[in-house]
Amino acid sequence: MSRLKLFIPVFVFLALAVLLWRGLYLDPRTLPSVLIDKPLPDFELRTVENASLITKADLPDEPFLLNVWGSYCLPCLQENPILMAAKEAGVLPIVGVNYKDKLNLARLWMDDNGSPFDFSVVDEDGRLGINLGVYGAPETFVVDGNGVIRYKHIGVIDYKAWEQEILPAIAAVKAEATL
């Protein structure tokens, strides 16, 4: 009996080793989004383009992308071509949230680089961003036809992210809609 007790450390260690081994294959850097499957927060903001007042009701009735961006944000510039291409191809509507930016700078940026957005709302104090759980621009949400957040991508969208994460997410949401 005593001799068996001496084996306890080996077993505890083995359990620990298995745990650590599994842990190696987890990605420690996926950041969570608690807002998945929750509706978009309410808001009342003006657009960048023509200062018209927009609320949640004015958002598209079909699945769309909500893209948080700013003129100061370098990665936003980097993902602009992808979003533009998506707009050209008519994949789905894209709505922008101009986050913690200056209106004139935002307009300049859109003139210089082209805008993939149907429209962008001005979130100068960042309140909408906070309510969306935004860490910072760029972040992109896939929202379904009922205004519910279904997917969140943090950081720049490169081709890999677009193909492997965002497109499938969009497809999944669209497929549901037809059921």
């Binding site: 001496l6 084996f7 650590l20």
Partner: peptide, 27 residues
Amino acid sequence: GVYILGFLGFVIGGSLLLFALRAPLMK
């Protein structure tokens, strides 16, 4: 990571096994 874990497993696992087999029974 896998290499170090393997090394860890071998060295510590082996030592603890040796311990279980050879340590004087804790009378």
